[in-house]
Simulated assay, not measured.
Amino acid sequence: MEANQSVLRGQAEIWKYMFSFVDSMALRCAVDFRIADIIHSHSGPITLSQIVSSFPSDDYSSPPDITSLARIMRLLVRRNIFTATAHHSNGEDHTLYGLTDSSRWLLHDSELSLGPIVLMQTQSWLMAPWHRFSQCVKEGGIAFNKTHGRDLWQFMSENSDFNKLFNDGMECSAKIVLKTIISEYKSVFDNITSLVDVGGGTGVAIAEIVKSCPHIHGINFDLPHVIATAPVYPGVSHVQGDMFKCIPRADVWIMHDWSDEDCVKILKNCKKAMPERNGKLIIVDAVLEAEGDDLFDDTRLVFDLVMLVHCPGGKERTKIEWEKLLKQGGFSRYNIIKIPALPSIIEAYPQ
């Protein structure tokens, strides 16, 4: 009997993983409709009719299908994204939907929100390459390139809508990580007077650091088409360029999704750009533990496959892989600081 139950559980697991994309798309619906924001604006659980009545009327040529939404919400309640409570009033039974610790991360107007990166990762431009996943295992190559005929970075430079979607997604995740670092690990910025965010996007990360540590002069360094959309931040200079060629001189902060060979080139350029004495490289990136039981260990493994599909040579790395990479790039000493977030902090020092 126990053996039969084990086999049955195995079958159930396959069904669950087969349709896990439905969870992602239901989550996207919640973000698209700003359901968490609507509930939050009422300061408590509300009915489905109240949710629908708060949808912008200009966005719909006909009334929203409340029955379809009810079925989506039923799954999201099952996934603990929202709560559902039975309520009786005026002689009728209603279901009241409320927020959970998960749905609070979907609030658009919150300082810290994962909403933009949910929209980014579930957008068809990034979903389509997954259909080339098996083909890339057989033939090699990058699924994104095979799907769109160019790499991620070129696609961004040619598509302003995708460029904004991508930058919004990166900004929201950077804010969350920076909030943790600045509130609990601010000492990593001690004795730093100038800081370059290499591949810093529109500059939100370096801006948050400079805001908290005003003694630091921040430099946001990225490609021209990215810098062109970057807003002005106090204490931050935007510099356009190519990190494979040259990086502005300063203590350096770097985040990247590149192959080992490309990372070594970037690290060597970082070393050249650093002060001769007391220079420090700060990397904020995942450190994989395949058998780990940290809250984010499972997501780190998933992110490794996201890199495999979207980025040429991109991958998440184990501690041993980071050590090898840093040594090849000219950084013989390093220190990994685990933080309560998806990435870790890696402090590296030149030989």
Rank of each mutant, 00 (worst) to 15 (best):
R9F: 13
Q11G: 07
W15R: 09
W15I: 11
M18N: 10
F21T: 06
D23G: 08
A30R: 06
I35S: 03
I35G: 06
D37A: 09
I38C: 04
H42V: 07
G44S: 02
I46A: 02
L48E: 05
S49P: 03
Q50C: 00
V52K: 00
S57E: 12
Y60A: 12
I66F: 00
M73P: 02
R78V: 09
N80V: 05
T83M: 04
A84W: 00
H88I: 07
H88A: 08
G91C: 06
E92R: 11
T95Q: 12
T95L: 12
L96R: 11
G98R: 06
G98N: 01
T100I: 09
W105L: 15
L106Y: 06
L112H: 09
S113W: 04
L114F: 12
I117R: 12
L119F: 03
M120Y: 09
T122I: 06
T122Y: 03
M127N: 09
H131L: 13
R132L: 09
Q135R: 10
V137M: 14
G141D: 06
G141W: 05
K146E: 15
L152K: 08
Q154L: 11
F155K: 12
M156A: 15
N159A: 07
S160P: 10
F166Y: 14
D168F: 06
K175D: 04
I176P: 02
L178N: 13
K179M: 04
I181H: 00
I182P: 04
S183I: 03
E184P: 00
K186F: 00
V196C: 10
D197M: 03
T202A: 11
T202I: 13
V204C: 10
A207Y: 02
C213N: 07
N220R: 08
D222Q: 05
A228E: 15
T229M: 14
P234I: 09
V236Y: 03
S237L: 14
Q240V: 02
D242W: 06
R249K: 12
A250L: 04
A250T: 00
D251E: 09
S259G: 14
D260P: 10
D262G: 14
D262F: 01
K265E: 13
K268R: 15
N269L: 04
C270E: 05
K272N: 14
E276M: 05
N278F: 01
D285F: 01
V287Q: 00
L288E: 11
E289M: 06
E291G: 03
G292L: 08
G292W: 08
D294A: 10
D297T: 10
T299P: 01
L301E: 11
V302A: 11
V306W: 10
P312D: 13
P312L: 03
G313I: 06
G313P: 06
E316M: 12
K319H: 13
I320Q: 15
E321V: 06
E321Q: 15
E323N: 14
E323V: 07
G329Y: 01
G330M: 05
G330P: 13
S332R: 07
S332P: 01
Y334N: 14
Y334H: 15
